[in-house]
Amino acid sequence: MTLLWGTYPAAGLGTPAGLGEGIWRSTRPDDPAAEQVIDLPAPSFLVAHPRLPLVYAACELPASEVVVLDVRRPAAPRIVARLATGGADACHLLLAPDSRTLYVSHYSSGDLAVVPLGEDGVPVDDAPAQLLGHSGSGPNAERQEGPHAHSSLIAPGGRHVLVVDLGTDELRRYRILDGGLLEPDGIAATLPPGAGPRHAAVRGHLLYVTCELDHRLRTLRWDDASSTATVIAETPSTLAPPRSAELQDAHVALVPGHGGDVLLASVRGADVIAVFDVAPEGELTYRGAFDAGYWPRHFAAVGDRLLVGEERGHRVRSFALADVIGMPPEGGIGDVAELPYAAGEVVSPACITEI
Rank of each mutant, 00 (worst) to 15 (best):
L3Y: 03
P9E: 00
A11S: 14
G18Q: 10
L19W: 02
G22E: 01
W24L: 02
A34I: 02
D39E: 15
H49Y: 01
R51W: 06
S64T: 01
V67T: 12
P74N: 00
R78Y: 07
L83Y: 08
G86F: 06
A88H: 07
C91H: 09
R100C: 07
R100A: 12
H106P: 10
S108C: 09
S109N: 00
G110I: 11
D111C: 13
L112M: 02
A113H: 05
G118T: 10
D120M: 03
G121D: 01
V122C: 06
P123H: 11
D126Q: 13
Q130P: 08
L131K: 05
S135H: 13
A141F: 09
L153E: 12
I154E: 15
G167C: 08
E170N: 08
R173Q: 12
G179Y: 04
L182K: 13
A189Q: 06
P192R: 14
G194R: 04
E212N: 11
L213T: 13
L213I: 14
L213F: 14
R218Y: 08
S226R: 15
A229R: 00
A240G: 00
A240M: 00
P241T: 12
E246R: 15
D249G: 14
A250E: 15
L254G: 09
H258C: 03
G259E: 15
G259N: 15
G260N: 00
V267H: 14
D271W: 11
F276Q: 03
V278Y: 13
P280W: 03
L284E: 06
T285I: 08
A289V: 03
F290D: 10
V302M: 10
R312I: 00
R317P: 05
R317E: 07
F319G: 11
E338K: 14
Y341P: 11
V346A: 06
S348Q: 13
